[in-house]
């Protein structure tokens, strides 16, 4: 099987890759693995029951990247995959996931990705997941990612999860356990339009002393769309946690934001900040006074906000 122009365009949008990258890789197209390759330090193989991948990054690996993008172009396909990622002790690596759906039909195209990530002691991970949908309006594009991550002692992980345009329905669930001196940062950027719905549910348990967690959510809701953002920080030890949810609301859209902090240790320092509002009028006129039209000004502000 070969990659079509459409597949390549989707891959470029979600994973920033042109053609087939070198290094460890798995491209999943319409429910099956199309290209799979390992590198000396990163093995990419099937899991025991054949429902997904196991990606193992060798301890001590430096600065390597593995791509595991998913593309759905077959109308009405309901795809489900279970992937496990193990980042070995002291390794430093980047995982680029993401899913692009093209659906021109009247049927629902859906991808559920269940990812389990284990960042071993002292390792460092950057995980990037971009979601994107396109095609005519009739067939829905649905994405339900679940991410379960364990950040072991002294390890650090940064998860960046982006949903750019075209996904009609999404329920994103993220569960994290952060151990002693572990560090987790979750960045979420979400844009919904039209009749789209998006729900994000993040739960972080800070288990060990000196653990830190930070959630930064930037959301824009346009049209008639609806977003629900829930973030819970649970501090079980002397730890530091902060949730920040910033949202821009336009047209008739609605956003509901529910930050929750739960401390089970007197030395847990947990904070949250949430703000929902429209684009500030001063920002608009400022950009218009530089010659932008109102529409250009709005787009510039949103692009920056979601960058």
């Amino acid at each position: 099987m070969k990659l079509s122009k459409l597949d390549l365009d989707l891959l470029n949008t979600i994973a920033d890759i042109k053609g087939v990258p070198s290094g460890a890789l798995n491209i999943r197209l319409n429910g099956a693995s199309l290209i799979r390759q390992s590198s000396p330090n990163i093995s990419v193989g099937p899991n025991a029951d054949g429902t997904g991948l196991i990606v193992e990054i060798k301890p001590g690996t430096r600065d390597e990247t593995v791509h595991v993008p998913v593309v759905l172009t077959q109308a009405g396909l309901q795809d489900k995959v279970y992937n496990t990622f193990i980042v070995g002790e002291g390794a430093d690596a980047t995982i680029i996931a993401g899913c692009g759906i093209h659906n021109d039909s009247h049927a629902i195209s859906r991808h559920d990705g269940i990812h389990e990530i284990i960042v071993k002691a002292g390792a460092k991970l950057k995980y990037l997941e971009k979601h994107y949908g396109e095609g005519s309006d009739a067939g829905k594009r649905v994405l339900n990612p679940t991410t379960v991550i364990t950040v072991e002692a002294g390890a650090s992980a940064e998860l960046e999860m982006v949903q750019i345009k075209g996904v009609d329905d999404t329920v994103r669930s993220t569960i994290a356990h952060v151990h002693e001196k572990g560090n987790l940062k979750i960045i979420e950027r979400l844009l919904t339009q039209g009749e789209q719905k998006a729900e994000s549910d993040i739960q972080i348990v800070l288990e060990g002393t000196g653990g830190t967690a930070q959630v930064l959510s930037r959301a824009v809701a346009q049209g008639n769309s609806f977003q629900l953002f829930r973030a819970a920080l649970i501090g079980k030890a002397a730890c530091l946690g902060h949730v920040e949810c910033d949202a821009i609301l336009m047209d008739k859209a609605r956003i509901r934001s529910i930050p929750e902090i739960q401390a089970e240790n007197a030395d847990a320092v947990l904070t949250h900040e949430a703000a929902i509002g429209k684009i500030a009028g001063e920002q608009l006129v400022k950009l218009m006074s530089l010659g932008l039209t109102e529409e250009e000004a709005v787009n510039t502000i949103l692009e920056g906000f979601l960058r």
């Binding site: 930037r218 910033d246 500030a280 001063e282 920002q283 400022k286 218009m288 006074s289 530089l290 010659g291 932008l292 039209t293 109102e294 502000i301 692009e303 920056g304 906000f305 979601l306 960058r307």
Partner: peptide, 20 residues
């Protein structure tokens, strides 16, 4: 916008900030 394009410019007393 039209005035800006015609050649009027204003540096705000309290310029707004932009995230991103």
């Amino acid at each position: 916008t039209e005035r800006a394009r015609k050649g009027i410019g204003y540096a705000f007393q309290q310029p707004p900030r932009f995230k991103g």
